[in-house]
């Protein structure tokens, strides 16, 4: 069985079970990891990943789904699900800004507790816009190129770079408040 995503997608559109299984095997771990990085809970990440594939199958069943760029399509669904989840459970903004970020962190350079540090970053990511969050996570956590991100989001390269710039600035304000904003 080919691992070429475009070929697999073509076969999947004819409901080829082997191709659909291969697609799951190719992307499920990556989508789980992507979801986990946002939500920090294994069970929720599993659920988001499963829901992504369920929606993919439903779309195919109704003659929809992607014509190409399968990976981008799947990530987009997961991202939308994460955004929905965030909307349902708004972050504790006060606690994040005042208590945890300032008092608990004597200096961002010294991350006292790794788990607590990750949680702080997750909370901070929830405070920026969904588009900025998608750009930053795909860029810095998944290692995608700006062109790939632009393709996934259906935006121009310039828009993606602007989102990246604004997202980094916003995160910096939230997480490194009071520090020298210049890089390095």
């Amino acid at each position: 069985m080919s691992s070429n995503p475009e070929k697999l997608l073509q076969q999947a559109r004819t409901f080829d079970q082997e191709a659909l299984a291969r697609i799951y095997d190719l992307y499920s771990d990556a989508l789980y990891a992507y979801a986990y990085k946002h939500v920090g809970t294994a069970q929720v990440a599993e659920d988001l990943m499963a829901e992504t594939f369920r929606r993919f199958l439903t779309a195919l069943e109704h003659g929809g789904g992607p014509q190409d760029h399968l990976r981008a399509y799947l990530y987009r669904i997961t991202h939308n699900l994460i955004t929905d989840l965030y909307r349902r459970e708004p972050p504790p903004a006060q606690e994040l800004d005042e208590d945890r970020l300032v008092e608990d962190s004597p200096g961002p350079s010294s991350i006292l507790d790794e788990k607590q540090g990750s949680e702080r970053v997750r909370q901070a990511l929830r405070l920026i816009t969904p588009d900025q969050r998608q750009v930053l996570t795909l860029k810095y956590l998944e290692g995608w190129s700006s062109t790939e991100i632009a393709q996934t989001m259906g935006k121009s390269l310039g828009s993606v770079k602007a989102l990246q710039h604004r997202g980094v600035a916003a995160l910096q304000r939230i997480l490194l408040e009071g520090e020298d904003p210049s890089p390095g």
Binding site: K37, P108, S109, I111, E114, G117, S118, R120, V121, R122, L136, Y140, L141, V168, L171, Q172, L175, L176, E179, P181, S182, P183, G184
Partner: peptide, 13 residues
């Protein structure tokens, strides 16, 4: 251009 501290924090995820 990203602040290395911020980058490191992101990478904690």
């Amino acid at each position: 251009e990203i602040n290395p501290k911020l980058k490191k924090m992101l990478e904690s995820l």
